[in-house]
Structure formats: structure tokens, C-alpha cells
Simulated scan of single mutants.
Amino acid sequence: MFFRFFHRKWVAATGRVVDSRLHSVRNSNARWAYIVQFAGPNGQKTKLEVLEDHHTLGVAVGATVPLLVRPDGKKAVFDRSDPQINAVEVVKNRKRADEERFRGQLEN
């Protein structure tokens, strides 16, 4: 809820993950940092570093990901409300696909 409120004026965009690395933060916790390329507000290709969010899954190098970009184009975050990378939705979809695959094997 606070995520959407804080980013309410940010623009939705789609980007491609170019590279990733492990980014250490305080308290010895590590998160992934991604370089994401997308079309900025002025239409030019822009590359920014986007930090991993614990609410997202399915982000890998070469993947197309939904973003929220600040109107000035200087900061971006993953749009964790999008079902493509939302952790809860990704897990549900994987379970559903496994169940369908398993039931399909029973029928054959």
C-alpha cells in the first residue's frame, strides 16, 4: 500500500535486465543489483541500477521486467505489483503449472 502511494506519480515502463551483481548493504545483508535498460521519459535509452526487492521474483539477466520510473528518469524501481514478478503470484503460477503437469501425466 505504501509502495504504490510513494510511487504514485512515477511512470510505468518496461525494461530489459542487462547485468546483475550481488550488492551488499548494511548489517551484512546482501541484495541483487541489476542494470536495467529502458526508454526514458525523453525517449532515449537509459540504463540505471535497480536494487532487488524482497517482494519480487523472476528477475534474471535478459528478462523483460516492469518498472516504475521517476518522471525525471533518474531513478527506477521494479513494479512489484505486476504479477509477472510479484513473488506471491510467481509462486502461485509455479504451483499451478506443476499441478497441471502432474495431472497431465496421470491422464496420459
Rank of each mutant, 00 (worst) to 15 (best):
T14Y: 08
A30L: 10
N27Y: 13
L22K: 13
A39R: 05
R101E: 15
G43V: 00
V36S: 01
R96H: 13
V36T: 03
R26P: 15
L57I: 07
K45L: 12
K47C: 11
G15D: 01
F78R: 01
V88Q: 12
E52L: 02
N27L: 13
R94Q: 14
S24C: 15
Y34R: 01
K75W: 11
V11Y: 10
L106K: 14
V18Y: 09
V36L: 07
H23D: 15
R4I: 10
Q37V: 06
R4K: 12
H7I: 04
P71H: 04
Q84L: 14
E99T: 15
L48R: 08
F5P: 04
R70H: 11
V88T: 13
I35A: 13
R21N: 11
E49W: 12
L48A: 02
D72L: 08
V50I: 05
V17T: 07
T14S: 08
T14G: 08
K74V: 14
K47P: 00
P66N: 05
V91K: 09
V59I: 12
H55W: 15
R21P: 03
G58N: 03
H7T: 09
V11P: 06
K92D: 04
N108L: 14
T56A: 12
A63C: 05
V65A: 05
D53N: 14
H55Q: 15
V25S: 00
R101P: 03
W32T: 12
A39D: 08
R8A: 12
A60K: 09
N86I: 01
Q37A: 12
V36W: 04
A33N: 04
K95L: 13
G40N: 00
A13E: 06
A12N: 10
R94H: 08
E49S: 10
H54I: 05
V88P: 01
D98H: 13
V91P: 00
A76T: 06
Q44K: 11
V90I: 11
D79V: 02
N42I: 02
A76S: 09
G62M: 02
N86G: 01
P83T: 10
P71R: 01
G104S: 12
